[in-house]
């Protein structure tokens, strides 16, 4: 039985030029979807069906793309929820955080909560799906991976550690069919009320010295930071010294 997989895509933003582009993580969501479901994959976008960036996703080898049409100031989650409820879906793939808009990363969680599904965040790979269960690798900090088993259906957000999106072919992208579904949305009131401005560079934190006397200020400016001296083993046997190191490694859980 082929899997019924949906990848949700959004409009990305190039960090330097600010131009619209295929979002890094969403591209990975499509790539992962293609790996699991091949041509059966459906790709869904909420927003403007005439957005040229959608062609970049389609250029990854999709024959069609679904757009739930609605204006920017509407909330994407209720529409998506209604759409996903109608279909018999196994896995929904998203990025961790969008590159435009609020970038809150809440969409997978809100959808999962609304649909009553589990959500796995920061997925590096979906290794296999069998007997209604998926074997998922999570990307942890410092290049570590954790294996997790989760029952279908579920929502997964893809980390940058997932396999990168394939090259997008311009012609294929142009030929893909974009199916538009009209939808009635709800206005995102909080978003209407907030103010946006270009991001200010954040000031570097200064080393503040709370010294009361000149002598203290002088000391703070000149003294080397005094770390509490560590333990030094000199006269123990080699075996004991190695054991001391090994115990510290175990205590810090870097050896498993």
């Amino acid at each position: 039985m082929p899997l019924n997989i949906v990848s949700l895509v959004s409009v990305g933003r190039h960090p330097q030029s600010g131009r619209s582009r295929r979002a890094e993580q969403d591209g990975r969501a499509v790539e992962m979807g293609l790996k699991l479901a091949g041509q059966q994959l459906s790709v869904v976008h909420v927003g403007n069906p005439d957005e040229p960036v959608l062609r970049q996703y389609a250029g990854m080898g999709l024959s069609s793309l679904t757009v739930l049409k609605q204006a920017d100031r509407f909330d994407a989650v209720p529409v998506l929820q209604r759409y996903l409820e109608q279909k018999n879906i196994d896995i929904v793939l998203t990025g961790v955080r969008s590159e435009s808009g609020e970038s809150s990363g809440m969409v997978p969680y809100l959808l999962a909560h609304a649909l009553g599904w589990p959500v796995v965040a920061r997925v590096a790979d979906i290794v296999c799906v069998e007997k209604g269960e998926a074997q998922v690798l999570l990307a942890l900090p410092r290049g570590q991976r954790r294996a997790v088993r989760v029952a279908l259906p579920f929502i997964a957000s893809l980390d940058l550690a997932a396999p990168p999106a394939r090259q997008s072919a311009f012609g294929v992208g142009l030929r893909a069919k974009i199916e538009t579904i009209e939808s009635i949305g709800e206005v995102d009131q909080i978003r209407v009320d907030w103010q946006e401005a270009e991001a200010k560079p954040r000031a570097k934190r200064l080393k503040t010295v709370k010294a009361k006397t000149a002598a203290e200020r002088f000391k703070a400016a000149t003294a080397k930071p005094q770390g509490d001296a560590g333990k030094v083993l000199i006269n123990e046997t080699t075996q004991q010294k190695a054991q001391a190191i090994f115990d510290l490694l175990l205590e810090e859980k870097v050896i498993r």
């Binding site: 435009s100 609020e102 907030w194 270009e198």
Partner: peptide, 28 residues
């Protein structure tokens, strides 16, 4: 609804990063 990537917070107003770190969003 949480404020994510917030970096300037007081009781009334929060400034948070948005759009992949390129926007500052001020909100309650």
């Amino acid at each position: 609804r949480p404020a994510t990537q917030a970096w300037q917070v007081d009781l009334e107003k929060t400034v948070a990063r948005g759009a992949g770190g390129s926007l500052d969003i001020s909100r309650a």
